[in-house]
Computed example of a mutant assay.
Amino acid sequence: MTPTQLVLGSTSPYRRELLARLGLPFTVAAPDCDETPLAGESAADTATRLACNKATSLAKQFPNALIIGSDQVALLHGEQLGKPGNFERAFAQLSRMRGQTIVFHTALALHNSASGHTQQVVVPWQVSMRDYSDAEIRHYLEREQPYDCAGSAKTEGLGIAMIENMAGSDPAAIIGLPLIELCRMLRTEGFPLL
């Protein structure tokens, strides 16, 4: 029997807004997950491990649910860029990203807590940044304050003006929750979408 409860294992308002687009009832719960990257771990592996940990950490709390976990890691020249947390770190990230191409690895996990089965996928997005000025960085950061976004790049707001072009297969993935892939996973679990 397919679980009828859908749970978003995330404190991200961006992921909550994205999931709400599907018009499905869901519960939001904060996962118990240490988000520290492991030594030698690739960006895709870090994102996948964290997405799976977020989903499975809520299994005891929601024993008959489909639990969504997601995580995003930005990669610039082999360096993982996390959430900056403040103006200074965001300014430094965006300065290094100027004129460069960054790959955002957005991982999605759907855990069926009744069966113990977890589906997972990573959706990469390539984002090429413009050669913007320091003044543009300051203006963007003061206006958007994207300190809780991987790589300080908030494409759903003014951050789009910092970007030259983007390429990927699931437009919601760059914001933090791959909806095309999530719909596929939900269908696989027999969860009604329409």
Rank of each mutant, 00 (worst) to 15 (best):
L50E: 04
E156I: 09
L19C: 01
S10L: 07
C149G: 03
E156H: 11
I160Q: 09
G99Y: 07
N86C: 15
R96Q: 13
M185L: 08
A59S: 12
R96T: 11
T2K: 13
Y147C: 12
N112L: 01
G176N: 12
K54G: 01
Q80P: 09
E164H: 11
T101R: 08
S152F: 14
L177P: 06
G159C: 09
G78L: 01
Q5I: 04
E164N: 09
V28Y: 06
V73L: 01
S12W: 05
G116W: 05
V28M: 08
L38D: 09
L110K: 00
T188C: 07
A135P: 00
E144C: 01
R138S: 10
E189M: 08
T48F: 06
L22R: 11
R21L: 09
M162S: 07
A59C: 14
Q93V: 12
G69W: 12
F62N: 10
S57I: 02
A43S: 08
P13K: 04
E79N: 04
T106R: 12
R16M: 02
R98F: 11
D134P: 11
P13G: 15
Q100C: 04
L38M: 03
M129T: 11
L58W: 06
S10I: 04
I163H: 06
S113Y: 06
L50R: 05
W125H: 15
P146W: 14
E136A: 12
L177S: 04
